[in-house]
Design a protein around this nucleic acid. Structure first.
Lengths: 311, 311
DNA sequence: CGGTTTGATCGGTTGTATCGATGACGCCCC
DNA sequence: GGGGCGTCATCGATACAACCGATCAAACCG
């Protein structure tokens, strides 16, 4: 049988894919350029495969096979890490680094309450945070750059396990004096004819809001022709300011409202009438992660923080 | 971060799980006992985890953590192999060792025609064969001890991809002079009241046959009280002999019939009336195997061999 | 209670990963 | 167009770790 590639050489290869430069990749691996160069050469010799275009001047250009090998190398190194991780978790659960990814429509509202609670319950847990859109978080989860995601379900990703945390109801956010503000609750369909303001594309909350208002996938509300084409807010905070400025109405998740996102703006917040006006908050992790037990053990605490609270 | 365990040490651990004996595990790894012993110790030290019960005399007893680590080590080594495999496949597709698992109700009938065809089309492919029941084959596929399975679908296994090859119709096999033998086709339901002979438990063909005859899962045909309790044949060849001996009737798959399993026995073979009287033959492999491309390329040839032929 | 088996330990040897220095080559700039 | 720079490959020296053979301590067996 072909001898197995050494983890070290695979690390060199991955560093090279990341930096596209022998010197900097070597630096990232804390070895000299000569060592990394020899390592890559040895890997190509052992696999009997050309991973780099050697004739393309001095630039680092991967062959198609090189890219595939690199992807498999990433998976192989991660599964080696999983061995060590399983031991570490068994030795000292709820400790060490935990790289948590959060979407921008959850992070600013839950983390301020979640982090202290976690620190108190699991003081040895070191939480590294990263905020990004769902699709990018999922990609980083699969790459092994993140361990756990806090996001809105469902998130389409093979190879990931998920668990529900809580429902997060939507509120209609209206400018003061708006016609709908006189009602106790607002039917979601009524927003279809309003000027509905949304987050920019890529935020799952945008899709959830459109869905709740009865728009089909991809379809959207009518736009004022005078408005900048495709203009959309980049955060819920900007969105609130736009509604307060009278540009239209929007939907806000309960966690944002309870965190006081509309405080001081005079905005009128009304629950949606009828059922179905909510998103599901949840956790996601790589299937068969050695730390699955820990992640599931976090659920009650997280569900409590994410659940309804008195204002 | 914790340093990654070396593949060598993981191999030692797996050899130890297999042999439960330091000396023999060392021999299997082609190292001395002292080396393997030191390697295991080093692994336990690096992971800071007790993998073996050190106080249980001289016997080798794994801790629960030890077993989990071993399972993850198996996965890690396999993903390292996948790196080398990807390179080997790209360098020389359809060559090298291919460990093929086949179920006993397919192997004896298809392999005699499949092997020569494969040898002719892909002379550099070295096929290692293993015959076993579906569940055991699937387990060995997941363990990495087999690369490809030829079996009857569906086979329940997460982490495996499958593809259909061909339908394999069932024939009623009747002793000469049997009442049903006068008909051109036999309704499957008519076999419910016959003395239906079956393979022993564990063969998927047994379940398929029961299903075709209209028995619910787990339910079975009425038994002669004089018959040895739960007696069942161990191969289709024995089954044919039993039918020829007048002990009852059975169902035979078309591939067995065409291979001449009933030749010279005087058995009467009748197609089943109506639709649904067939099983699906297919291939299965580990998801994301580097050789998936090769496996799919084998499908046309295999489907042709597995498909209907003139008698 | 001696002999045998089994896993742990120790000193010596070999292999190899790594380093620093140097070479080969393309590229840019003056 | 030639000198200088940047980049990757190569080379000899070295330090570390894996490995072996021998030996030890404990358990097990007859």
């Amino acid at each position: 049988m072909t001898p197995l590639p050494s983890p070290q050489q695979l690390r060199y290869l991955l560093a090279l894919t990341e930096h596209q430069h022998f010197g900097r990749a070597a630096e990232a691996c804390a070895v000299t350029q000569s060592t990394l160069s020899a390592g890559i050469l040895a890997l190509e010799r052992q696999l009997d495969a050309r991973l780099l275009e050697r004739d393309a001047g001095k630039r680092v250009v991967f062959t198609a096979l090189g890219r595939e090998i690199a992807a498999r190398a990433r998976a192989a190194l991660r599964s080696l890490e999983a061995v060590a991780e399983a031991a570490a978790t068994a030795r000292a659960p709820m400790s060490g680094a935990l790289r948590l990814g959060v979407i921008p429509t959850i992070g600013p509202f839950l983390l301020p309450r979640l982090m202290p609670a976690l620190r108190q319950s699991y003081p040895r847990l070191r939480l590294y945070l990263r905020e990004d859109t769902t699709d990018r978080l999922v990609a980083q989860l699969n790459d092994g750059r993140l361990d756990l995601l806090l996001l809105a379900l469902p998130c389409a990703s093979a190879g990931a396990d998920t668990v529900k945390l809580a429902r997060d109801a939507f509120f209609a956010a209206l400018p003061p004096g708006h016609g709908l503000a006189a009602r106790d609750t607002v039917p979601a369909a009524a927003l279809q004819t309003e000027h509905l303001l949304l987050l920019e594309d890529g935020h799952c909350l945008r899709d959830h809001a459109l869905e709740v208002c009865g728009f089909a996938r991809g379809e959207g509300p009518a736009r004022d022709p005078a408005e900048p084409d495709g203009f959309a807010a980049t955060s819920l905070h900007t969105l609130v300011q736009m509604v307060a400025g009278g540009l239209g109405v929007t939907l806000l998740p309960r966690i944002a409202v309870q965190a006081g996102i509309a405080a001081g703006t005079g905005l009128v917040l009304r629950p949606l009438a009828g059922a179905g006006g909510w998103r599901t908050l949840g956790l996601a992790w790589r299937s068969q992660s050695p730390r699955e037990g820990e992640y599931r053990a976090l659920v009650p605490l997280m569900a409590q923080v994410a659940g309804p609270h008195a204002a």
